[in-house]
Every structure is written in structure tokens, then in C-alpha cells.
Simulated scan of single mutants.
Amino acid sequence: MASAKIKKGDSVVVLSGKDKGKSGTVAKVMPKEGKVVVEGVNIAARHRKPTQQNPQGGIDRFEAPMSISKVAVADPKDGKPTRVRFEEKDGKKVRVAVKSGETIDG
């Protein structure tokens, strides 16, 4: 399996959809489904009926998964979206931002 270009903890920028231009940190990656969960982005709401566990009921807001193709890693230099490539440095495979050439921590 190829190495993932987006990993948990990465700073990403949303490229399309209702949250276009927003940025956040990746909370969860689901490679088999091709989805990511980004903190503070793609907030969904579920209206819950009162139950014995939750007698108040109400509206639950949560971060819904979004397609991994809708996000790009933020460049460490300026925070703008960039592609990622892999390079060999000191015998280790590291992720590098294509725009600036900076190494992406992670």
C-alpha cells in the first residue's frame, strides 16, 4: 500500500464545498472510505428525540467526514494549499510540500 499523503494531525485547507477556504486539523483519516474528518469543518446537525439516556433531546452538532479529495495539505510556509511529494532524506522517506519545498512534520 502506498503511503498516505494526508495524515492525522496535518493542517489542511478545504478546496470545495460549503466550507471552501476554511482550514483545520485532521482529526481522523478513513483511507478505505476515502474520507477525512477535519476539526471545525463540515459541521452536521442531527435532531434527537428525548430518550431515557438523553431526556432533554435537542440538536447534536458534529464534524462529519468529507471526501479526502476536497482537502489539501496546507503549506508550512504560508498556509495555502499545496500538493505533497515524497523524498528520501537521511535514509528516511519524508513528505515535502511541492510549492515551497518545506518538509511536512508528521
Rank of each mutant, 00 (worst) to 15 (best):
M1A: 14
A2P: 11
A2M: 12
S3T: 11
S3L: 14
S3H: 11
A4P: 06
K5N: 09
K5Q: 10
I6Q: 04
K7I: 13
K8R: 15
K8M: 13
G9N: 10
G9Y: 07
G9S: 12
G9M: 08
D10T: 02
S11H: 13
V12M: 04
V13M: 07
V13G: 07
V13H: 03
V14S: 01
V14H: 08
V14G: 02
L15P: 01
L15M: 15
K18M: 08
K18Y: 07
D19E: 10
K20L: 04
K20I: 09
G21V: 09
G21N: 05
K22N: 10
K22M: 11
K22A: 04
S23C: 05
S23V: 02
G24P: 02
T25Q: 11
V26S: 04
K28H: 12
K28C: 04
M30V: 06
P31Y: 08
P31D: 14
K32R: 14
K32H: 13
G34K: 13
K35Q: 15
K35T: 15
V37L: 07
V38N: 04
E39L: 12
E39D: 15
G40A: 09
V41K: 00
V41I: 15
N42H: 14
N42W: 00
N42Q: 08
A45P: 04
R46L: 14
H47P: 06
H47D: 14
R48P: 05
R48T: 12
K49A: 15
K49W: 00
P50I: 09
P50K: 11
P50A: 10
Q52K: 13
Q53L: 13
Q53V: 06
Q53E: 14
N54L: 10
N54T: 11
N54F: 15
P55F: 09
P55R: 07
P55K: 08
Q56R: 13
G57V: 07
G58M: 09
G58S: 09
G58A: 09
D60E: 15
D60P: 03
R61K: 15
F62D: 08
P65R: 02
P65F: 00
M66Q: 12
M66W: 06
M66V: 06
S67L: 11
I68N: 03
K70S: 13
K70F: 07
K70N: 14
A72K: 09
A72Y: 01
V73F: 06
D75Q: 06
P76K: 01
P76G: 07
K77G: 01
K77R: 12
K77N: 12
G79L: 12
K80V: 05
P81T: 02
T82E: 05
T82K: 01
V84Q: 07
R85C: 05
E88R: 12
E88H: 03
E88I: 02
K89Q: 13
D90T: 01
G91F: 01
G91D: 08
G91A: 04
G91L: 06
K93H: 08
K93G: 08
V96T: 03
V96S: 03
V98K: 13
K99C: 00
K99W: 01
K99M: 03
S100A: 11
S100D: 11
S100I: 11
G101A: 08
E102V: 02
E102Q: 14
I104E: 00
G106Y: 03
